[in-house]
Amino acid sequence: MIDKIKSGQEIIGEFLNEIGNIEGVDKDIANTIVKLYREGKLSKTHLTNELASIREDELNGKD
């Protein structure tokens, strides 16, 4: 249980700040989610496309 009551924006902001530190989460995915949210483009379609693009880059040895 948390002590302070947070607004939706605070929860999202805090989560995005911590997302890269969640154990087992790929850093590229974490960064992509943060980037899409900041650009106001976080949607299922955009995120799925970005994930496909990350996989493509990794397969092409850009990682």
Binding site: I5, F15, I29, I54, L59
Partner: peptide, 29 residues
């Protein structure tokens, strides 16, 4: 390719679970 897909799935599952927990905790609070 399979490993990347599974790793992405694992990452997204972790992200979803962590986010849902945060939402639930804050609402309960």
């Amino acid at each position: 390719e399979m490993a990347h897909l599974k790793q992405q799935l694992r990452s997204m599952e972790l992200i979803y679970n962590e986010f849902a927990k945060k939402q639930k905790d804050n609402l309960a609070s």
